[in-house]
Computed example of a mutant assay.
Amino acid sequence: MELTLTLLGAVFGGAAGALVPRAAYRFAVDAAEPWRARCPRGHAIAGPWGGWVGFARCPSDARPEGGGACRYGPGRGVAPAVSALVCGLLAAVVGARPELAVLLVVTPFAVLLSAVDGAVHRLPDVVTLPLAAATVALLGAAALLPGHGGSWVTAVAGSLALAALYGTLFLVNPAGMGLGDVKLALSVGALLGWYGWPTLFLGTFAAFGAGALFGVALMVLRRAHRRTAMAFGPFMLAGALVGVVGAG
């Protein structure tokens, strides 16, 4: 049963992760620019939901003769693998509990946000805010089902507490913490808070610890200095994974 659940989680993660690169490519622009509507070769991106859903490649009839396949998107080979690995791990650790469905749904969006933040140091509001609302609502639904392993009350409290922490850091040092991180903290705090305050502390500590180690490594390799901007969203999400796995 556990192996089957793990495999199903990995399959879901891989399938959902395959859709990440197209959305990541469209979102990976500076704040003053509109979302991308064309591929790198100039082909219009079309498909379901205004072209946001689909694989990061153009149809065969849109490719220039002799030009080969037109594939695009940051991390297009990595995103499906990471999503599959994380979903499989979560399925193995959490097991057949109601909150597993919430974690599996959130994971591809977490991979998407990590890809965009890593590419342009931006966490789009059109993803972070609906994701926060959906995470809290879905955890609330999970709390109504038998066999759940957390608390919706602490999930809401954790969401607000972590957002308040990141909001304070933003006010103290806007150059070191972005508003996108504050909004992402709503989702991360809910997921960690679901399992209690120790899990929230663990996930938060893991995020800052990993970010600090990565920054030091970049400075040692002379690829950055103390004032170099760094995308922190991926570390927040990695910390959330550490906390959830630790709680499981």
Rank of each mutant, 00 (worst) to 15 (best):
A141N: 08
R97Q: 12
G149N: 05
V127M: 03
T154G: 06
A92E: 14
D61T: 11
L123V: 15
A84Y: 00
A92N: 14
V93D: 09
S114V: 12
L145P: 02
T107C: 06
G149F: 08
T154W: 12
G150W: 01
P74K: 09
S114E: 08
L123A: 15
G147A: 01
L113N: 10
V105I: 14
H148E: 01
A133Q: 13
L89W: 11
V93F: 12
L104V: 14
H121W: 07
A101F: 06
C87K: 05
L138W: 13
R71H: 08
G147Q: 02
G118Y: 09
G140E: 14
W52T: 12
L144Q: 13
L139I: 12
G47Q: 15
L100R: 03
W152K: 09
W49M: 11
A143K: 01
L144C: 13
T135S: 14
V86A: 02
G149R: 12
V106T: 01
A91E: 02
S83N: 01
G118T: 11
V105A: 15
L104R: 06
G68F: 02
W52I: 10
W152P: 09
L138C: 13
P124I: 04
S114G: 11
V102T: 15
G118M: 10
V106Q: 03
D117I: 06
E65R: 13
V78S: 07
L131W: 06
Y72Q: 08
R122Q: 05
P59C: 08
A141Y: 13
E99R: 07
G149K: 10
G77F: 09
